[in-house]
């Protein structure tokens, strides 16, 4: 096949995917092993194996992305390759949306169906009468249906919407603006501004994560935990996975910042930057959903 300019770039065989699979296997096997002392290899609470796997994955990511960046900078990718990457990223983000949808769905189900059912709604009069007599549903659910039987802590405080969460909303929305400013700067070829706005975005992102961490500490100290019934479960799982995604997004943007400082990207050709920016907007939109459904309503 002639590698005439304009033809689709087909990478040569690569060792990175297999390394990635091995790393993933070691990481997850290690994590699962650490969860119980009845499982093989490592004892309960021992995370060594998991860290080894993580290290391999990080090594793989550096190697793989490094190679992609070299190929990209050497001009191997034509417009059609660029479109493949774009589609790849778009559909990846769609899959992430569906992952969050599962948790939002769970929240919806619990709030509008199962908790009222425990209180006797719909066809569940008998449930309330015979199993949870005297229980009235509420949201946040801070008294568990059988709190009397023990097992779940009762907590007094829930997280209000208009303190840190509102501030965090402002932070993330602002960061959406700064990342767009960075994009404009890139399109204009203004590298200084690009780096600056990227830096601002990353800082906003990490401040967000910091506030979130502060909020978690506060919640735990007042007794709202992951194990505080379904309110705690949905609250921490949704905000926790979101926080994880903010962190990943911020790391992606940091990489873009260093790359822009190194002189990567042109005003025409900067897909990696755009991918990170899309991801950032996705994280932003998920937060709006969280703010409304977890905090405000």
């Amino acid at each position: 096949m002639s590698q005439a300019s304009g033809s689709y770039y087909l990478p040569e065989p690569s060792k990175w995917p297999v390394i990635g699979s091995i790393g993933m296997f070691i990481m997850l096997f290690g994590f699962a092993s650490s969860l119980s002392d009845k499982t093989p290899l490592v004892g309960e609470g021992n995370l060594t194996m998991m860290y080894v796997g993580m290290a391999i994955i990080i090594f793989m990511l550096f190697g793989w992305f490094g190679q992609v960046i070299r190929e990209s900078e050497s001009g191997a990718y034509n417009g059609q390759v660029d479109i493949s990457f774009r589609m790849g990223m778009m559909w990846f983000i769609f899959s992430e949306v569906m992952f969050f949808a599962a948790f939002f769905g769970a929240l919806y189900y619990i709030r509008t169906l199962s908790v009222p059912w425990l209180g006797g709604a719909d066809n569940n009069a008998a449930t309330n009468e015979f199993l949870y007599n005297g229980f009235t549903p509420s949201w946040p659910l801070n008294v568990m249906p059988d709190a009397a039987a023990g097992g779940y802590s009762v907590f007094k405080e829930t997280i209000g919407a208009w303190g840190i969460p509102a501030l965090n909303t402002a932070l993330l929305l602002t960061s959406g603006v700064t990342v767009t400013l960075a994009h404009w700067a890139l399109k204009k070829g203004n590298r200084g501004a690009l780096t600056f706005w990227l830096f601002a975005t990353v800082v906003l992102g990490f401040v967000f994560v910091g506030f979130q961490a502060y909020e978690y500490i506060h919640a735990y100290s007042t007794g709202l935990k992951l194990s505080s019934g379904v309110y705690g479960s949905t609250f921490f799982m949704l905000t926790g996975f979101h926080g994880l995604h903010v962190t990943i997004g911020a790391i992606m943007l940091t990489v873009m910042m260093f790359r822009s400082m190194k002189g990567h990207f042109t005003d025409e050709n900067h897909f990696a930057f755009e991918a990170a920016a899309w991801y950032w907007h996705f994280v932003d939109v998920v937060w709006l959903g969280l703010f409304i459904f977890v905090y405000v309503l």
């Binding site: 619990i110 379904v230 479960s233 799982m237």
Partner: peptide
């Protein structure tokens, strides 16, 4: 991804004390 969500909830119900699928904590 929805399946991934389902098994993730299982994982935390099993190991980290959430109660998505446990009526005693308001789940189902």
């Amino acid at each position: 991804p929805v399946l991934a969500g389902a098994v993730t909830m299982m994982l935390t119900d099993r190991n980290f004390g959430t109660s998505f699928f446990d009526a005693a904590g308001g789940g189902d």
